[in-house]
Computed example of a mutant assay.
Amino acid sequence: MVPSSLANAPSQVNAYNGKRYVTSLTPTLSAKVTDPHGSGTRAQFELTADPGYADTTYSYTGTSSSVSSARRPR
């Protein structure tokens, strides 16, 4: 399944490369995920540092709690 309505806030788009960057250490991430059978669904999010601006290579992966299909996990 492919999520839709992806969003992160606060964020901004880099005018040079068109990529969206999170501008907070505590962002809100959201996506609309659905299951064709209507079962509970979770979203998994991953944040990685931009190597052009960070002197480290780390990533953070988080998974939302299970929600009824078609709701927006946060």
Rank of each mutant, 00 (worst) to 15 (best):
S64N: 05
S66Y: 06
Q12L: 09
T57N: 09
L25Y: 06
K19T: 04
Y21E: 11
T34V: 11
V2A: 13
P10W: 04
V33A: 05
A9F: 10
S24T: 06
R74D: 10
V33D: 01
R72Q: 15
S65T: 02
A15M: 03
Y53S: 09
G40L: 11
A54K: 08
G18F: 00
Q12A: 13
R74T: 15
K19I: 03
Y58Q: 11
Q12M: 07
H37V: 02
G52F: 07
G38H: 05
T23F: 02
T34S: 14
L25A: 03
S24I: 02
L47S: 06
P3R: 01
N17R: 03
D50G: 03
T26P: 02
A15C: 00
Y16V: 13
S30Y: 03
T63V: 14
V13W: 02
V67D: 03
V33Q: 02
P27K: 02
V13L: 09
L47D: 04
P73C: 11
R20I: 12
H37R: 12
A7D: 13
K19L: 09
F45V: 04
M1R: 08
P3W: 01
T48C: 08
D35F: 01
G38W: 02
D55H: 11
S66C: 11
R72H: 11
Q44R: 15
A31N: 07
G18K: 03
S39F: 11
S59V: 01
V13Y: 07
T41K: 12
T56K: 14
H37L: 14
E46S: 15
T61Y: 02
T57P: 00
S11H: 04
N17K: 03
R74S: 15
S69Q: 06
Y21H: 06
E46I: 12
Y16T: 14
L25Q: 01
A54S: 13
S30D: 02
S39W: 05
S68N: 10
Q12D: 09
Y58R: 10
S68Y: 09
A70H: 07
Y21A: 06
S39P: 00
R72T: 15
G40T: 10
A54F: 13
T48E: 14
P36V: 12
Q44H: 08
N8K: 00
V33I: 13
G62W: 00
A15Q: 10
L6G: 08
G38Y: 03
P27A: 05
T26Q: 12
P10A: 08
S39N: 15
L25V: 06
S59F: 11
G40Y: 07
E46M: 14
P10V: 06
Y21Q: 08
T63M: 09
P73K: 10
S69L: 07
D35G: 02
R72K: 15
F45P: 01
